[in-house]
Each structure stands twice: as C-alpha cells, then as structure tokens.
Write a protein that binds this DNA or RNA. Structure first.
Lengths: 250, 250
DNA sequence: AGATACAGTGTATAGCGTACGGAGTTTCGA
DNA sequence: TCGAAACTCCGTACGCTATACACTGTATCT
C-alpha cells in the first residue's frame, strides 16, 4: 500500500511514536500524565470540567504548555478515550462464549464507570493502542471458534455497541449522562409516564404499565444485561454451528 | 404517581404543549422551523456549522429571538435529534421479523443520512414524539410475537444500538464523522495498517490481512449489515420459540 | 563557543453562548 | 374604550474558552 505518511499527531503520540530528535530541554510532561489528569477531572466534574486551563492547573503547568503534547482539545478528548480503557479481560482457558460474555460485561462496566465516555463520541472507531487491544482480543477469541474476517469484526462491533447501549440505559436510569437528563433517579420513567398516552403510543403505554422501564422495587439491573447478551451469543453460536457443518451463507 | 410537574421546557414544546396564555404578539417562529433550519445547516456544514447565530441568520431573525423557543443550545440539539427522525416504517402485514428487519435498516439509513446525529449523543434515550414513536412501533411488533415488558424494551434498544453501530462504521469507512476522522475514503483502514503489527495485535493483524475492514474492491457494504442483523433476529427468534413452549428463563 | 532546535510561558484575540434591559405589540379586564 | 399586563423580538454587553504568536531559557550538536 502507498504510504501517505503523516499520522495524525496525537495518534502518533498515543502509540509512543515520538520524533527521534533529542535537542533542547527534556519534556516535563507525558501525554499519559495529561490524559490521566483530564480523566480525573472528567470523573469528578463531568466533561464540562475538562478545560485546557483546568487540566493544566492540575498539573501545575501553564495552559499553553499542553499544546506541546496535544494539537487541540479535540485530540485530547480522543486520547482520553483510549487512556480511560482498562486492559481487556485475560482469555484464560475460557471458551469463546465465556470470554466474549466477560469481555462485553467488562466493556459495559468501564463505560458505566466513566459516564463522560458516553458523551465523547463513543462511536468513533478505535484508534488507540488500548481500545484496539480490546478489539484484538475479541477477534482472537472468535478466530479460535472458527470465525474470522469481516464477520468477526462485525460481531465484535455489535457486542461493543451492545455494551454502549447498556451503559447508556443504565446511566439514564441511575444518574444522568453528564447532567443533561431531567433529574432524580427514575427521571426518565417519570417523564415518559407524563408524555405517553395510549392513543398515540400503545406499545409504549403497555410497556410502561408493566413496569418495563425499571421502576420495579425488586429490580436487578444485571438481569437485563444478561438477557440481551444471551440473545447475542445465541445468535453467534448458531452461526458458528452453521459454519462448522457446511460453508453456506447465513 | 406524584406529579413533579414542570416538564423541561423544550420537551414540552417538542410535544406541542405550549402554555395556554395568548397575549402579546403572535410568535413568528415555530420550534419546528428552527430545528429544520438547524438540521439543514448540520447536513450542509456539520455540527460545527450550527451556531445560534447561523441558525438565526438562516431564518432571518436575530440570534436572541431563538431563546424564546429554546432555553439553550443544548436543548436545540436535543430537539434536532427528534426532528431529524423520519416516521418509522409502517407495519403492513409484515411478520415481526420482517418488520424489525425493516425497522432496523430504516434506522441505520437515516442515521447515515445525517452523520451529525452520531456526534450528538445518540445515546440519550428517546424523549421526543418521533423517536418515541420508533420505540413504540418496535414494541408493538414484538408484542404481537409474544414478547413484552422489559424483554421487549431491551430488544428494541439492542436493535437500535446495532443501527447506530452500523451507521458509525459505515460513516467511518466512507467519509468522516463530522470531519474528525483522518482523511480519504479508506482512511481508517490505512491508519490501522500503519499502526498494527502482528506482535501486539495478532487478531487485528489477521483481520486486516484478510481485508476485513472493507477495502476489498467488490465490496457490498450491505452484506455486513444484513449479516449482523440476521444474527440478532435469530437470537430473538430462538427466544420467542422458548417463550412459546414453556415459561422458562432464558 | 556558537548555533540550533525545542520546552515552557504570557499576552492577546476571536468566537461563541447567553444574561439583561428596552421597545413595540397584542390581548384581557374594567 | 383605555390602561395594564403579558409577551415577542432585538441590540448590546459580558464572560468563558480555545488557541495563535512571540519570547525566554535550556540542552544538545558541530
């Protein structure tokens, strides 16, 4: 492939691809220290608390010095997303099914642990070393089960989307996504109850009446998650079985 | 249920719940005209093109007059999301499976048609009349198949997440999400190829080598989508079957 | 030593959202 | 019919934020 060279600056630095020249004073910071500070701020005050000035202040440097490491705030956010991702679960001696279940759950958990991630486009495809390692692990696991190529990528991204969607629902019910929601714990349910009438929205009205939106007192939110996950894994399992027997198209 | 009254202002206006008092000059605008203008701008210039001033200019009014209809720019964005959603597909005489397939596809299509939607948290749960009608239709369809309550809500949100994820991938491959991506058509693939080496990322490397990321010349992107969708629908079908026979937990 | 490239900083600017108060307009109550 | 009230629209002003630019000091290379 032709090399268009010129990786985006932050991407390069995220991967530790600094320029080789060593002249002048040593850099006093790292991209990592910067993202760590920014992440702490985001965890504590939400995305709104992340300003170039506030991040710099937390590190004891001037605002402008950050621009030596990051070309723009947007890029800082991109780097934060990657840095906030923990290491993906280890594939011990797990079956693909067990592993992917754990993977998806861990995915959701760290999203729920940093709600601001849901506000910084979590839709951007992964480009950092950490988020890509998540993808890699899922692909490896699927490869072991006989799935590869486009299909595997698709499955991984579907599972990831499920994690995002679950984390979102969870956050919407529990607290608020970056304080944008209405208020209170079951704010969403209350809102729907107010707005939805049986005429225009029969299906929704029925769902609300049945308490489908989680206001039930004996609620175990994890059941929800496991339910949908089973759904997905069943589908994948069926596909794997099909692939094992013959090579027919799905 | 106690009535905490006081709906968020925009929400009220999205639902056409204006205050009854009619005094003073007639409003010269509508929330709808405002969102339409904003949507046109977003379609043409991306989210960055949507400024209170630019929206107002397009409508031939002053910037500040918008604040009579919308309390803040964030609320405008919320209203835009709802307004940009078309009507959901009609459930003719379709089976639940046919309908949900069509529903999910339509969902992805309008997201892909307005890429900026992917940047305005598409994760916020639906609160407008249009997005809620989408949810309602899915629930109704599932109810006909014997699924209701939490399960149905979960399924709908999973399908919706899939639509988002597909639209995202599609946008990442084709163009750029709000011009944040690198550049060029297969920019993402190129980027990955540059960064990923077999040592740290064996699964990814294999996937790249097999052309899994869509650079193949005979590529029909819709195959991807249909593939994952089948996966999901199969899972749902299995569940429905289980529910039909006995009432065992999944 | 002198040149060179680079890290860190201070100042300045521009863009954007939005608070505030004024001016004009339509309806309500007497 | 008249005044007041409620409301729409607008111009100006402010504050906050990201970031361009020019400068100072420092570590390396010739």
């Amino acid at each position: 492939m032709g090399s268009g060279d010129e990786l985006p600056t932050v991407v390069a630095r995220m991967w530790g691809l600094e320029s080789a020249s060593r002249r002048g004073p040593r850099p006093g910071l790292t991209l990592e220290r910067i993202t760590d500070a920014a992440i702490e701020l985001a965890d504590a005050e939400g995305l709104a608390g992340v300003r170039m000035s506030s991040v710099a202040a937390r590190l004891g440097v001037s605002t402008m010095s950050l621009y030596g490491y990051v070309p723009s705030k947007d890029d800082l956010l991109t780097a934060m997303v990657d840095a906030a991702a923990p290491d993906p679960p280890e594939p011990g001696r797990l079956t693909w099914r067990e592993y992917l279940a754990r993977w998806t759950r861990a995915n959701r958990d760290f999203l729920a642990g940093h709600p601001w991630l849901l506000a910084v486009s979590p839709l951007t495809p992964p480009i950092g070393p950490r988020t890509l390692r998540w993808l890699d692990r899922a692909l490896t696991s699927l490869a072991g089960a006989g799935l590869a190529g486009v299909e595997a990528v698709n499955i991984a991204s579907t599972l990831s989307a499920y994690a995002v969607s679950s984390a979102t629902l969870q956050t919407a019910m529990t607290g608020t996504v970056d304080e944008a929601g209405p208020e209170g714990p079951a704010g969403y349910t209350a809102l729907l109850t107010r707005l939805v009438d049986g005429r225009g929205y029969p299906g929704l009205a029925a769902a609300l009446e049945s308490g489908a939106f989680g206001a039930a007192p004996d609620w175990v939110e994890d059941d929800d998650f496991a339910f949908g996950l089973t759904l997905l894994l069943d589908g994948i399992e069926a596909l794997i079985a099909r692939r094992r027997e013959g090579r027919t198209e799905p």
